[in-house]
Design a binder for these strands. Structure first.
Length: 432
RNA sequence: GGCCCCAUCGUCUAGCGGUUAGGAUCCAUGGUUUUCAUCCAUGUUACCGGAGUUCGAGUCUCCGUGGGGUCACCA
């Protein structure tokens, strides 16, 4: 079993999508189910409808999963297991107040030493606990021995007990913390391998420790993906437009191209342009680079352009807002100067709109327009051109510029002979 | 600051002790084109530094340096 575990607290991030993609690929390779677990234990930060948005994006990208579970539905298990740990004295009630802990943290920071919980409540006598009416959290006792994490990408990494710390597993309001819920749920779902972002690296020994304490013997495998950096070399955040899958989609990047790019970076694929399904054939987690990768929109554009070229013309036509094959074929030609569907639309749409004629060609354009309007239908561009030249008497730049502007609404563009093939049936519509 | 990870062109990477250090992208130039672009050709640009091991180090070891991640009763 594999799992993708997003929290419904914001827009789907490309790093997240990448994690989903890798989980999907590996689940296919291992022939194991992939489940989606919505991590909604923080009621304050949950955003209504984000869960569905995430699911919609997964569908759009062709990421299939066997079921969706909501972490909040598992709290009774979390509670029961926390209780078990307390009874076994592997966890304890901690009465330290948030304010007190915050003060300790500030002190540690001031003294430039790492903050660690001092285990003040770890060995409280039972009567002190029973009589205490103050609110408390539950903390798990830190491990005795270092915990070694085996990661398919990072290799073996050891964490000292002090760095794992006696951390909180249940809050004062009796809800589980992330690490606890996550560790328990992965166990309950019988997850075999966890593929997630590198930012979870330091959570791993904690979650491992929880399962050990619970007596779970199966070793969960891990793979931590290097994070994606922005142009400044920092982790991509909400501030970076390109970090949002929604934004990328709106900019006119194809889902297939986005996944292609996300699988390509920090990887050594046998080829550069491929589909998600193709990548299942050769994908290997161990080939993923250990170092973070920079997001390069130029590369994405290049990949997107290639995917656009591979689309059949009918489909391409729909992406540009039309329905017929002919416009799709026209769009194909424009692919030589556009890399996203948004750019493509910006090229195609003006063709059917009223044209803005620059002052210097005003006169010629007027003459050209009336010549075109009275011209018969020509199958071949050459005949069309010769007729117009003869009738208008225009030539050279004075002929081609107005013609191009009248036909396409742009001063530059693809070879007119090429686009005429797809425009000839619409001439009446185009030149009004 | 503690812990963890990382280090080849601007970017993504090939390399696995002996190479003119290769490819893609980006950029520049030339050719093709009525135009922009495409396409083709060409070109600029990289082994973070220092010690060691070795006949020989981008490749192995150590130490620096640099970059990133993470240190919540968030996930």
């Amino acid at each position: 079993m594999l799992r993708f575990a997003p929290s419904p607290t914001g827009d789907m991030h490309i790093g997240n999508l990448r994690v989903a993609l890798f989980n999907y690929i590996v689940s296919k390779q291992k022939n194991e189910d992939l489940i989606v677990r919505i991590e909604d234990t923080d009621k304050e930060r949950n955003i209504e409808g984000k869960d569905q948005e995430i699911l919609d994006i997964l569908a759009l990208f062709g990421i299939e999963y066997s079921q969706v579970i909501y972490q909040s539905q598992n709290v009774r298990f979390h509670t029961a297991m926390a209780l078990q740990l307390v009874q076994e004295k592997k966890a304890f009630a901690c009465f330290c107040s948030p304010q007190w802990l915050e003060k300790k943290r500030a002190q540690a920071k001031e003294n430039k030493i790492a903050y660690r919980y001092d285990d003040a409540c770890a060995e409280l006598p039972a009567e002190l606990v029973i009589d205490n009416t103050n609110p408390f959290t539950i903390r798990i006792k830190k491990p005795q021995e270092p915990i070694v994490v085996k990661d398919h990408i990072k290799g073996e990494i050891s964490f000292a007990p002090d760095d794992i710390d006696s951390f909180i597993i249940m809050r004062q309001d009796k809800t589980p913390t992330y690490n606890f819920a996550c560790a328990v749920d992965d166990m309950l779902s019988d997850v075999s391998i966890v593929i997630r972002g590198e930012d979870h690296m330091s959570n791993t020994p904690k979650q491992d420790h929880i399962r050990n304490a619970l007596g779970y013997e199966k070793k969960v495998e891990y793979a931590h993906l290097p994070i994606i950096l922005n142009n400044e070399g920092k982790k991509m955040s909400k501030r970076d437009d390109a970090s949002s899958v929604k934004w990328l989609l709106e900019e006119g990047f194809l889902p297939s191209a986005i996944s292609n790019y996300l699988i390509l970076i920090g990887n050594k694929p046998p080829c550069e342009v491929f589909t998600l399904e193709e990548s299942i054939e050769w994908f290997e987690l161990t080939k993923i680079s250990k170092s973070p990768v920079r997001f390069d929109i130029d590369m994405l554009r290049h990949i997107n352009n290639e995917h656009l070229k591979n689309l059949d013309s009918k489909e391409l036509s729909r992406y540009v807002g039309f329905a017929d094959d002919e416009i799709g074929q026209l769009a194909k030609i424009y692919l030589e100067e556009a890399s996203t569907t948004k750019e493509l639309k910006a090229k195609i749409k003006p063709i059917f709109e009223e044209k803005n004629i620059p002052d210097e060609f005003q006169e010629q354009a007027l003459l050209m327009a009336s010549t075109i309007k009275s011209a018969p239908y020509f199958e071949e561009y050459n005949d069309f051109k010769n007729y117009l030249m003869k009738e208008s008497g225009l030539k050279g730049k004075n002929f081609f510029k107005p013609l191009r502007i009248l036909l396409t609404g742009a001063e530059h563009g693809p070879d007119i002979a090429e686009i005429y093939k797809h425009l000839k049936n619409y001439i009446g519509e185009i030149v009004k």
